[in-house]
């Protein structure tokens, strides 16, 4: 009695194989990631001096720093986020909390999901037609940021809806049954309990915004635009800017004679910017969670 049977041993073998297989797959994901980041940082490190971060590029991008590109990328992230995050979150609240389930909302939801899958270059072309030409913004930070906002909006809506839907229905029922209005339910219970998920969705889009090259290339990013002088606003929203992603592309493929470590340094900086923005958002999330009264 209770001794191991043949099928039992087979099951155990399968168990071991499955565990190894899934473990290997995880390693196959994590190790290349670490290698890439390590490689980029290692190769770029010699070029990353204070001068690299704080000066304009010189000699057609083969020398000097990346200051305007760094500022440009931050501008693009912030401006596009200021547009897409509020609109996206509020639209998702409407779709998830207010809208009735009917053919129209089904079409809207379908459109949101499909828009999230549109290639970024197509968004770029749309931005070029809509913002640069039709609305006469010209090639500018504003047009580029709006394009990026349009691009990230569907994903923000989808992830926010997911976060809202994960708030248990029983919380909502409890609210309705003491006579809370929809808005009170959303404001007091639903949003505080989904804010982490909402922010996570928004954070992910920051990385995407920072890295996109194609749409901003068409709508407002120049290969060279120096920043002269200081002041609070380094760029005007109506002028073009540089961006790290575009600069990386340019230095690597167009500017002949640029030292190799320069492009790796730019890539490392881009990673750093994404990390910085994400860390800020995570700190904000932790702060919000700590403020929640129990």
């Amino acid at each position: 009695m209770f001794t191991e049977t043949l099928t039992g041993r087979k099951k155990q073998r399968h168990e071991r194989v499955a565990r190894m297989f899934f473990g290997l797959m995880t390693a196959a994901m994590v190790i290349p990631l670490l290698l890439i980041v390590g490689f980029v940082v290692f190769k770029g490190a010699p070029a990353m001096t204070w001068e690299f971060f704080s000066t304009n590029p010189r000699r057609g991008g083969t020398a000097g720093g990346i200051w305007p590109a760094l500022v440009g990328t931050l501008y693009l992230i912030l401006v596009s986020l200021c547009i897409s995050a509020p609109i996206g979150v509020l639209a998702a609240v409407y779709l998830n909390e207010y809208a009735k389930e009917n053919w129209f909302t089904r079409i809207v939801n379908l459109a949101v999901v499909n828009l999230a899958g549109v290639p970024s270059i197509v968004h770029g072309l749309f931005g070029l037609g809509a913002f640069v030409y039709a609305l006469h913004f010209g090639k500018s930070i504003l047009a580029a940021a709006l394009t990026l906002a349009i691009m990230t909006l569907p994903v923000i809506i989808a992830s926010t809806k997911e976060a809202l839907a994960s708030v248990p229905r029983s919380f909502r029922e409890a609210c309705w049954n003491v006579g809370a209005s929809r808005w009170q339910t959303i404001w007091r219970i639903v949003l505080p309990n989904s804010i982490s998920g909402i922010l996570t969705g928004v954070i992910l889009q920051v990385s995407r915004t920072a890295g996109e090259t194609a749409p901003v290339m068409l709508t407002g990013v120049a290969t060279f635009k120096a920043i002269e002088g200081g002041g609070l606003f380094l760029y005007d929203l109506r002028e073009q800017c540089m961006a790290l992603s575009m600069h990386l592309f340019y230095v690597r493929t167009q500017a002949s004679g640029a030292p190799e470590e320069l492009s790796y340094a730019i890539a490392a900086t881009l990673l750093g910017v994404v990390l910085l923005v994400n860390t800020t958002a995570i700190c904000f999330r932790v702060f919000l969670r700590a403020r929640k009264k129990w």
Partner: peptide, 27 residues
């Protein structure tokens, strides 16, 4: 809103709000 205020409901699964005891009572 007034109707639901005067006609309260208790559910099968206890569903306290994710707040403190105090805030639940004064909600």
């Amino acid at each position: 809103i007034e109707l639901r205020r005067r006609v309260g409901m208790v559910f099968q699964r206890p569903n306290p709000l994710p707040l403190s005891v105090y805030e639940n009572v004064v909600f």
